[in-house]
Simulated scan of single mutants.
Amino acid sequence: MVATANGENVSVIFTRETRALLDGLLSALAEFITELILYPIGWPVLKLLTLGKYPVKGSWLAETNQANWTRATGLAVLVIAVMAAAHQFSGY
């Protein structure tokens, strides 16, 4: 809120309803990214590291620790791949 010259409070950018809508949209986008992009990236890495034990079948869209670890592994692999593509590990 910002006070105008006549003392009225005016919302600078967004109303409360607009902020709630944007919060919902960003939350849905974050869930989409983690469940449908990061999980498939982390799945083969975690299968390889655990010799096929984890993640178990049916954990893709579940809210389990195995699914969360798989998504976190996917995020780590994605970050390392982006850093490698940007030559962050070249040492120059």
Rank of each mutant, 00 (worst) to 15 (best):
L61A: 07
Q88F: 05
A28P: 01
L22G: 08
E17M: 06
S59R: 04
W43Y: 14
K53I: 04
R19G: 04
L36W: 09
T18P: 00
I80C: 04
L29P: 05
G91S: 05
A67G: 11
T64W: 03
N6K: 01
L49V: 15
M1I: 13
Q66S: 10
G91R: 01
T18S: 11
W43T: 05
Y54K: 15
T4R: 10
P44G: 10
G7V: 07
R19L: 13
G58C: 07
W43K: 11
W43P: 02
L46F: 10
T4F: 04
S11A: 14
L38Q: 00
A72P: 04
W60N: 02
V82I: 12
A86F: 05
Y39W: 15
N6S: 14
T15Y: 06
A5V: 10
T50W: 08
L29F: 11
L48S: 06
K57T: 02
E17F: 07
S27N: 10
T34C: 09
S90N: 03
E35C: 13
L38M: 12
A28G: 12
S59E: 09
G24C: 01
R19T: 12
T64D: 03
R71P: 08
L49K: 04
V12H: 00
A28H: 14
A81T: 05
V2K: 07
F14A: 15
T4E: 13
T15H: 14
N65P: 05
R16P: 09
E35K: 15
A86M: 05
V56F: 07
T64P: 00
W43F: 13
K57A: 09
S27R: 15
W43E: 10
T4A: 12
E35F: 15
A30I: 10
G42Y: 01
A3V: 11
A67N: 08
K47I: 09
V10M: 13
A62D: 09
L78I: 02
T15R: 15
G24A: 12
T70Y: 09
L51E: 06
A84K: 09
S90I: 01
W69R: 07
Y39V: 05
A81G: 03
G42R: 01
L36V: 11
V77F: 01
E31Y: 15
I41S: 00
G24D: 08
E8F: 03
I80Y: 03
N65M: 06
E8D: 10
V2G: 07
L49C: 08
N9I: 06
A85I: 05
